[in-house]
Amino acid sequence: MKEILRLEHIQKVYGNGGSITKAIREISFRVEEGEFVGIMGASGSGKTTLLNCISTIDAVSAGHIYLDGQDVTEIKPKDLARFRREKLGFVFQDFNLLDTLTIGENIALVLAINRTPAGQVEEKVRAMAQRLSIQDILSKYPYQVSGGQRQRCACARALIHGPRLLLADEPTGALDSHAAQMLLTTFAGIHRQMGATILMVTHDALTASYAQRILFLRDGEIFTELRRGSETRGTFFEKILQVLTMLGGGAQDVR
């Protein structure tokens, strides 16, 4: 399998002088093309910081991040927006949809920003909406649909331009259990059918069980790694819970 993401000795330090906080002490890992990787850890373990560094929203203090062989830590600030626009897709906990645009327009916006020919936009939006079962709500505004539908719209928006890497930050955090399950099924489907590479940060063991591989962070370092392999999701879920217990407490302590 082709490597798509590689992190080498990443460090991230906040503050200066006497008050320094090491959010990421030392992290290195690789993600292959088409992999579905989950990142778990307690609150303050550095998982969101790690995601922000990979997505270029935040800069690393030391180390290198390679996406498709390109060192993103070396990209000039003025080129970062373009890099994000073309290579990455985002799904946020609070959806981040624009309330002034319809669901369809929210999805189309990404294509327009990426300069997709106008004639192809609507066709692509329809196809993606079909795949995520939101074709009936394309003309509705975000405040007119449910949380689950909004998040699926966010997924469609993140995937519509064919990003190299889909980054998801607690995608089920604002959803009820039914909507969360539907979304995770969608994620699994995207991964399976489209071969999308997904890096998902979550604190929820059930959500994480949909991934193929899970990296557990503790105090800014990778504590351990868990691969699903050919196991069923139920078995994988049990293993995740065991690791969480080893991390220092039960699932209730992991955020």
């Binding site: 002034t100 189309a108 327009a112 920003i113 936009v121």
Partner: peptide, 19 residues
């Protein structure tokens, strides 16, 4: 006018105005 609507950030601009 899809050509105008889907050009760059026009969609966002239209959204801002029309809302």
């Amino acid at each position: 006018s899809p050509a105008c609507r889907y050009q760059g950030t026009n969609l966002f601009f239209f959204g801002q105005m029309i809302s």
